[in-house]
Design a protein around this nucleic acid. Structure first.
Lengths: 334, 334
DNA sequence: ACGTCGGACGTCAACGTTGACGCAGAGCCG
DNA sequence: CGGCTCTGCGTCAACGTTGACGTCCGACGT
C-alpha cells in the first residue's frame, strides 16, 4: 500500500508496441488480440494476454478514436445540475451510457444559449460521437448549426428540425390532462398554474396545454423555474387570486417553493389548496405534505435518449421523434 | 433554419490541411496561428483566420492530445448523483473546470469499489489528465493502483498515501464541534447521532469526532446515508432512546429522512427535538422546518479540488493535503 | 562585400492505433 | 503436381496535430 519512492511519478504507459516486443509479434497482431478480431492462434493469444497483464497495458482510446473516428463518448448538456430533476436524469443517462460502454462528458449551459453553443463546439472538437441536449430556453439555431456540421444530437423535450437531431419528449400533454382531471375529480374548481416564464411561446407545452383545458380567465403566473421562483409566483398568486384552491406547477422545484409560500400564508395544503408538481424528484416524497406530481421516469428517459442517440449514429434516415409515457403520482398534497 | 436535403449527414470536418490549402501555406503555419505561437506575419494571420471561418475549421482535440499527451479533460467519479450534495458539488467542479478550459467526464460508482476501479481504468484509457474522486466506502487500493500507474487523483474527504494523490478535505471536525456546541448552548442535553453505517472505521470522521465530544453512552444509530436510512435510523432511535432532544445527522439527506420520522411520531422540531444536518443542500431551506446544518461550500470545494488537481499535474512533489473551512448555518430546526 | 541574425515560413517524424493489403505455408482437391 | 483456399501473421500508411529542426531572405553591422 505504501508508496515506492523509486517509482517515477508519471510512468511511461505501455503501448501495443511494447507488448508486441515482449511477445515477439507485430503490434498489429497484438491489436487483433485486444480487439478480438480473430486471425491469431490460441497460443499467440495466450502469450499476448500474459504480456498485456505483465505490462499493465491499456489501449489508448485517444489514438484509437483518431483512426476510427469514433470515441464511444457522448456529451450531456443540461441547463442546471442543481435542479434534482436534471441530476436524476443525468444519472439515468450516465447509467445507460455506461451499459453501452460509453463515457459521458457533462456540461452545464446555465440556460444560456451562447454558453450552450460554446459547449457544443468544444465537445465537438473533443470528437464526441453525439450529444444529448436539454436546450437552453432561448436556444434556436445553435443546435441546428452543429447538427449541420455533423454532430448527432438528441434534443429532449424540444423540437428541432434537422436530420441529425432526434427529439425525445415526454408526453406532457397527457400528464397535464391527468393532473387537471385529478384536481377536478377532487372537487377543485379554481385552478391556477405557476409556470416557467423564461420559455419562448412555442416551448410552453405545459402551459399551453393547461390553458387549453381550463377557462380562459384561469390565472397563470410566470417566474423562474426554481424554488425561489415558485415561492414568489405563489405569493403573487395569493395576492391577485386569493380564492384559488388548486395549483399546478411547472415542475416539482417550483411546487416546493409554492408549498413554502402557502405555509407562510397559513394556507393548509391540501385542505385549503392543492398542489401538483411535475418531474417526480426524490425529495417530493419527503416533504410535508408529500407532493402529488406528474412523474417523468428518469431512468427510462435516460435510456431512451441514449438509445435514440445510438440509432442516430447508425441510421441513415432521420429517426422518428419518440414520446415517453408519463404518469400521475398522487400523494398528500392534493 | 430548414434542412438542406443535399447536405451530407456527416460532412467531412475541415482539417489544418484544408485550411492550409485554401490559404496557400503549410499546415504548420496554420497550427501556429491557431495556437497563437507567433512566427507568422499579420497578413498571414488574417488570411488564415478568414479561411478558418470560411471552412468552419475546429481543431481536432483528439489528435492534439495524442501528440501532446494532454487532454484538458478530467474525470469526476462520485458515488451517487441522486444525492443533492454530490449534484451540487459536481456543479461546482464542472464550473471550475470550465473556467480553466477543461472538460469533465462524469462517472458514478454507485459506491462500489469494483465499479470505481473499472471506471478509473476506462477513464485512464480515455487519457484524462487526472481524476477527482469521491471514493466508494470500501475503496482502498484501487485508487492507489491507478495513481501508481500514473493517474493524478484528487481524493475528497478520504486519505490515500501516494505522491500522485492529493487529498482535499472539509474541516468536519470543526463542523461537528460547532454543531455540538450549538446544540448545548440551546440547552439540549440528550444528544444522538444518525450516521452512515457503510463506512469502515477509519473513515468515520464525523462519527468519531462526535463521540469524542459527548458522553460515551450517547446513542449513535447507523444506517444508509439516504433519506430512507435517516428515516429508519430516527425511528430506531425513538424506540430505543425516546428521551433524546437533539439529533446530529451524517448528512442533510439523512436529516430530512429523520424529520419525516419525527413528524410521523408527533415529535415537534425543534420544540421536542432539534435536528442538525451536514452538507447544506438547497432543499434544506425549503423544508418546514428549514434545516440547521454544517455547511460545506460546494463551489469552494469544487474550485479547490480542481485547483489541487492542476497543481498535482504540474508540481513534482506531493502537494499538501488541503482543508476547506466549514460553517454552521442555523435555521429553524434547532 | 561578407558575416550574422532573426523573422517567416516549410519539412519531417512522431504520437498509438487500425484499415488495407500482402505473403508464406499448410491443407485440400482434381 | 498445379492451383486453390484458408490461417496466421507482417507491412505500410493513415488519422490530425505538434515538436524539432531546416531553409530562405532581408536587414544590419563593419
Amino acid at each position: 500500500m505504501a508508496d515506492d519512492p523509486s517509482a517515477p511519478k508519471r510512468p511511461q504507459k505501455a503501448t501495443l508496441h511494447d507488448v508486441a516486443d515482449l511477445v515477439g509479434v507485430s503490434p498489429r497482431t497484438v491489436s487483433r488480440v485486444v480487439n478480438d478480431e480473430g486471425g491469431f492462434s490460441d497460443a499467440t493469444r495466450e502469450r499476448v494476454l500474459d504480456a498485456i497483464a505483465e505490462l499493465n497495458y491499456r489501449p489508448n482510446l485517444v489514438a484509437r478514436s483518431l483512426v476510427t473516428s469514433q470515441s464511444n463518448t457522448l456529451a450531456l448538456i443540461i441547463t442546471d445540475i442543481a435542479d434534482p430533476f436534471f441530476a436524476e436524469l443525468a444519472n439515468g443517462i450516465q447509467q445507460a451510457a455506461q451499459r453501452r460502454g460509453m463515457s459521458v462528458f457533462l456540461a452545464v449551459s446555465e440556460n444560456d444559449a451562447d454558453t450552450e453553443s460554446e459547449l457544443l463546439g468544444r465537445l465537438m472538437s473533443q470528437a464526441v460521437d453525439g450529444a444529448i441536449l436539454f436546450p437552453a430556453s432561448h436556444s434556436i439555431d445553435g443546435p441546428i448549426h452543429f447538427a449541420r456540421l455533423g454532430l448527432p444530437i438528441v434534443a429532449v423535450d424540444t423540437e428541432f428540425d434537422h436530420d441529425n437531431i432526434c427529439c425525445v419528449r415526454s408526453d406532457l400533454e397527457h400528464g397535464v390532462a391527468l393532473a387537471v382531471d385529478h384536481l377536478r375529480t377532487r372537487g377543485r374548481r379554481r385552478l391556477a398554474m405557476l409556470t416557467n416564464g423564461n420559455l419562448p411561446p412555442h416551448r410552453r407545452r405545459r402551459e399551453n396545454h393547461f390553458r387549453s383545458l381550463v377557462a380562459t380567465d384561469t390565472p397563470v403566473v410566470t417566474a423562474d423555474p426554481t424554488s425561489t421562483g415558485g415561492y414568489e409566483a405563489a405569493r403573487t398568486l395569493l395576492d391577485t387570486h386569493p380564492d384559488v384552491d388548486a395549483v399546478f406547477a411547472y415542475n416539482d422545484v417550483m411546487a416546493i417553493g409554492a408549498l413554502a409560500a402557502f405555509r407562510e400564508a397559513d394556507r393548509r395544503v391540501p385542505d385549503d389548496i392543492a398542489v401538483v408538481g411535475c418531474d417526480d424528484i426524490a425529495v417530493g416524497t419527503l416533504l410535508p405534505p408529500a407532493l402529488t406530481t406528474i412523474k417523468l421516469d428518469h431512468e427510462r428517459l435516460g435510456e431512451t435518449a441514449v438509445a435514440c442517440l445510438q440509432e442516430l449514429l447508425t441510421a441513415t434516415t432521420r429517426p422518428d421523434p419518440i414520446t415517453v409515457p408519463i404518469d400521475l403520482v398522487v400523494r398528500a398534497s392534493t
